[in-house]
Design a protein around this nucleic acid. Structure first.
Lengths: 136, 136
DNA sequence: CTTTGTGCAAAGGCTTTGCATGCTT
DNA sequence: AAGCATGCAAAGCCTTTGCACAAAG
């Protein structure tokens, strides 16, 4: 070894990563890797699909992005406001509301205790019909 | 028309459908179409994979089966005990506990009201580590 | 200079679909 | 006899992976 580096390194700064980050930050709601890629292409970007997949995964793994699975089974990403929260998503127009449900967190802890489970993840997303769409 | 039938018809009774129903009823926990198909084959059944997929979908659509999406994005099926409830699933050993969480139901109604949403589905499944697996 | 990221295309895995045949009604 | 159900294989879709090249540190 010519040098000993003790810093965790982290992902490199590349044009592609920057573009992807920007694209994700512009999202109004969740979007899949393919949707994000499409959108970028329309905006003139030439970043490859595989890179988008890899980068989104990496960002989600690093906690910079939240990933959920939509009702069709695809993985969708979104930048999240800091802190733990959930989403209330309209099945019809995809409108999304971020909700914090402290009672749910308590509930989960209670559940865990009652059944001897630990490290319970709850990627809880609520899908429903929003007022506007119900009106039609 | 030679005859006018007013009954909704419904799925036909076939050997395959019966076999699939039986297989699903024997499940201890959720299983995907492929897993169910494999299991049936090992038990000597020659039912085709496509038929298993189609039949499970049909049964789930008819409310005879509950379907969830597992963490890998595959659709998993299970016969459910009557009444609304959720599942607490061990990520390691797949052990599943059925839990009723009345407070959650209340919470959901509250959420809906607060944000003008209606018909909120909450396919809420909790994934965690059960006591046995945590002990190792 | 070394290592990680990117692109492209191919491969993979799960699920759906087309079509001819068989079975239910 | 008429029509849905089944099987098989092919097609589809989303996602991952292999490999050579480019770029970052």
């Amino acid at each position: 070894m010519t040098s000993t580096d003790l810093t965790p390194a982290g992902p490199r700064q590349t044009r592609q990563r920057a573009e992807i980050r920007r694209a994700v930050e512009e999202l109004a709601s969740f979007a899949t890797a393919q949707e994000i890629h499409d959108r970028m292409r329309h905006n003139g970007s030439g970043v490859g699909l595989a890179t988008v997949y890899r980068t989104l995964q990496s960002m989600a793994g690093g906690g910079q992005l939240d990933s959920i699975r939509n009702p069709d089974g695809q993985v969708a990403y979104r930048t999240c406001s800091p802190g733990h929260h959930h989403h209330l998503i309209c099945r019809t127009c995809a409108r999304t509301v971020e909700v914090t449900v402290p009672q749910l967190e308590q509930l989960v802890r209670g559940l865990a205790a009652d059944h001897g489970f630990s490290r319970i993840d709850h990627e809880v997303e609520f899908f429903g019909t929003c007022a506007d769409c119900a009106a039609r």
